[in-house]
Nucleic acid binder design. Structure first.
Lengths: 280, 280
DNA sequence: ACTCTATTGTGAGAATTCGCACAGATGGAC
DNA sequence: GTCCATCTGTGCGAATTCTCACAATAGAGT
């Protein structure tokens, strides 16, 4: 049995489509299709139903995929062990962080890290979707809440508050009862800052919903309404003015997350230290 | 990371040499060397020290091999699951048994199994070395003692006794105090029949030691001395005559062993039933 | 109705990988 | 000492595998 065939099949089982599996493995989708077919041929067992626009696992396929899943886990554990056994400081480190934190707090200061450790190459992915440290999609991650996955070590390294921001002209000309607002779309309804905004807005209108915080800031600058922005974003923008209201402002913690296997790696420690400085 | 590279490296780690790993994987030894080199290149980590006549794992290599070992276990579990999910009776079944049992009790009757289930192809390996059911070197095994490996199901399906055999002429012309004997070599000193023989021979001479029971029988036929043979072997041979002595004869149990994962497979059950009949 | 995007399928040339044959070297058996 | 078995290394031709480009189809959004 060819383990590469297994690898491709398990990727297909996990990702659901040929194309997604192919992206995950950095190969062509045709390759995944062929390897899965090869695995079926060598096992003399039908693992997938080829339907017009999708591959669907057969019962046998599901069973095999379930049994084989630990193989992928182990493979990732090996990758972590390899990373961990690199003694010197250097190599490529992947950091996952919410887009706003990545853009505003991390990216501008990366030049300092580069000067300190020229051997380190940083890959910074600013994504909403929390990258899996277990699957080694990232080596370090910034999260806004304490993660619960097993094997991860989290440390609270910061806290930031939100405030309402609008264009100075908007705030001067608009009475509070006529305020309009900019918010996340409904996929973020559970986020504290969104709940806070909803309560505050009450019956007043939400005129724009967007997933992207940068878009919210841009919209607020044009005077369309008020947006809830992290203070580190709003205060630095001369085209935005804070509108203070009473009560306790909403805030979020920042957690630095690393896999247990990588905790003591010199390179990881160096980068982790740098990130803490960024947030200090 | 290419899983096939990992597979080759883990085989090398387990088997110790390139050549052994190559045999295990059914590929050329050059391929194993190349894949291990490729793995090192992709991990940027030296896994083996290439010494003149041997590959030796580095510390990193040992660590990686240890972490990766469960992958091989899982791969074998998948193979068992595949075998188990074949519903019809058919396919290739590998039986491992001590050579004498295989040759005398199983092989001659295989034609009956073939008539009963034409779809089954039997691979019968008669080896001293106990094949690993966990690593799926065999699907069914006959052992002379109860195995202790986890995951295996064993059932006692038979019992046979040993006796002393020599050529009729030798027994007629030789007084007991002048008996000479044929025995296993010292690697079998712990086997019950060997211990029994040693006690019985006492100070009388062992004139031939050989690992192969068939050789012992052949030697005894020529009149060189007496050999301890299973009765199912000795009684069927017209050129051998049993020499009965007092006391309780030594015997061994026969255990039929199957992996838990394969227990309920129709094909396995059919073959297991056939083997029980052979021993009945 | 249409465009846009995401999916799987097909064919051909290029790149890669593999096995074979041979060499060199070493340790054990006789 | 000599032969034999075993192990690893090298070069080359053959077989395989991969990627690329294109096609077909379906679904969502405009």
């Amino acid at each position: 049995m060819d383990w590469t065939d297994l690898q491709h099949f398990l990727a297909l089982a996990r990702e659901g489509t040929l194309s997604a599996a192919a992206r995950n493995l950095n190969v062509d989708h045709v390759t995944v299709a062929r390897r899965v077919a090869a695995l079926e041929a060598s096992l003399l067992l039908k693992l997938v139903d080829r339907r017009p626009r999708s591959y669907e696992l057969t019962e046998d396929g599901k069973r095999i995929a379930k049994i084989g899943a630990p193989m992928a886990e182990t493979a990732f554990a090996i990758e972590r062990a390899v990373q961990a056994s690199k003694s010197g400081i250097g190599g490529e480190i992947t950091i996952s962080a919410p887009p706003s934190l990545a853009n505003v707090l991390i990216a501008p200061k990366l030049i300092r890290l580069r000067r300190l450790h020229p051997g380190i190459r940083i890959k910074l992915i600013g994504e909403k979707r929390t990258a899996s440290l277990n699957r080694r999609e990232a080596d370090l991650a910034l999260r806004l809440s304490r993660p619960t996955e097993p094997g991860l070590i989290a440390r609270k390294i910061g806290y930031f508050e939100f405030a309402l921001y609008g264009s100075p002209n908007y705030l001067k000309t608009t009475p509070p009862h006529a305020f309009t607002f900019v918010a996340y779309d409904s996929s973020m309804d559970e986020a504290p800052q969104q709940r806070w905004l909803m309560r505050f807005a009450a019956s007043r209108e939400i005129v724009l919903r967007t997933n992207d915080l940068e878009n919210q800031a841009a919209a607020a600058r044009t005077g369309i309404g008020l947006a809830v922005l992290p203070k580190f974003l709003g205060e630095a923008d001369p085209l935005l003015q804070r509108h203070d209201i009473g009560g306790r402002p909403v805030g979020r913690e920042v957690w630095l997350v690393v896999h247990r296997d990588l905790r003591r790696t010199p390179t990881i420690r160096a980068v982790a230290g740098f990130i803490e400085d960024c947030l200090a």
